[in-house]
């Protein structure tokens, strides 16, 4: 078989030069000691961030009307989560890459029905509240058209609603059981009971915070806090951290695409899917670099290697 021609970007020359003593174990030990010391110094100097988690309790106490408005969108099915699509529900197709509806193909594996899971089910856990029990029974027995009409009436009145002295005042006259439900849910939220009800729906032990996180993400409390700390997606927030700490700076390229057209403009509706697709292509290019003509020749052409191996070339 004929010998293949030597390709300087694929093949390496055979080294016939000198060898020098090298103590790999000593090198490794020194590295561990130096890194350990540096870690301790940095930790003592700068500590680490730990901003307390937000709860539905803190949210509904800080901005009760934002909570009520969000809860109402969960009930009438217009919130971000209610209209999300897969993997939470089938209200939408989800994002797509051209004709590829990846999210839809993977299916609904994290079932969330916002009206029931965020409003009705938590309210039904409250005992000894006859007015609420009646309201829930009325709501459950109503047609969907009837519910929609109550919800629309309440949503309209919510614009002029107020919260003072621990009471929600919304002058909805044709909202059926909705005012009683919303007042009870607000009280429940402000007491902290809603936080618990959302995580313990499936039992005592819990490690899954999907529901309260989705609920809070639908409101503006979490996002306003993030905006103030420069953490929003359109602020390159993915690589930022709470406080003045360095963040996941290695995500710079991923977060950058969200800031530039067409991802930030005409492709906006599918930006997440398209940025991911684009990053996958770039990652493949990086991983397959040794096989890509042109890209693999750059190191030989830019000649930075001459600095690294300058002793070698001087002695050659």
């Amino acid at each position: 078989m004929a010998k293949k021609a030597f390709n300087p970007d694929v093949d390496a020359p055979v080294y016939k030069g000198k060898y020098a003593p090298y103590d790999i174990i000593k090198e490794g030990t020194i590295a561990v000691v130096v890194v350990a010391l540096l870690t301790v110094v940095l930790a003592v100097l700068f500590s680490s961030p730990d901003e307390k988690a937000v709860t539905i309790k803190t949210w509904s106490n800080a901005t009760p009307m934002d909570f009520v408005a969000t809860a109402m969108t969960e009930l009438d099915g217009t919130s971000g989560t209610a209209t999300y699509g897969p993997p939470y529900n089938n209200a939408a197709t989800g994002q797509q890459v051209g004709p590829l509806t990846l999210a839809k193909w993977m299916g609904i594996n994290v079932n969330v029905n916002t009206a029931n899971d965020f409003v009705v089910a938590p309210l039904s856990t409250l005992a000894d509240q006859p007015a609420l029990t009646t309201a829930l029974t009325t709501f459950a027995g109503a047609s969907s058209a009837q519910r929609a009409s109550w919800e629309a009436d309440y949503s309209k009145a919510l614009g002029t609603g107020t919260f003072s002295g621990g009471t929600l005042q919304v002058s909805a006259t044709n909202a059926g059981p909705v005012p009683v439900m919303m007042s009870a849910l607000t009280a429940m939220a402000r007491s902290g009971a809603l936080d618990q009800a959302l995580v313990t729906a499936k039992g005592f032990y819990t490690t899954d915070y999907t529901k309260p996180l989705l609920f809070m993400a639908d409101g503006s409390f979490l996002a306003n806090k993030a905006q103030a700390q420069h953490l929003s997606g359109d602020q390159w927030g993915m690589m930022n951290e709470t406080g003045s700490y360095p963040g996941q700076a290695w995500l710079w390229l991923y977060t950058m695409w969200y800031q530039v057209p067409p991802f930030s403009t005409s492709w906006g509706a599918n930006a997440d899917a398209l940025v991911w697709a684009f990053m996958m292509i770039l990652t493949l290019l990086l991983a397959l670099m040794p096989w890509i003509p042109g890209l693999r020749s750059i190191p030989r052409k830019v000649k930075i290697y001459r600095l690294i191996w300058r002793e070698h070339y001087k002695n050659a």
Partner: peptide, 27 residues
Amino acid sequence: NYDSQWISTQAKDGINATGGGAIFNVL
């Protein structure tokens, strides 16, 4: 903490868009 709340509620959209959210729930 708050950092994990914010990062997970943001990152879910990226992962969900790829279909990965069905098996990898960041929340």
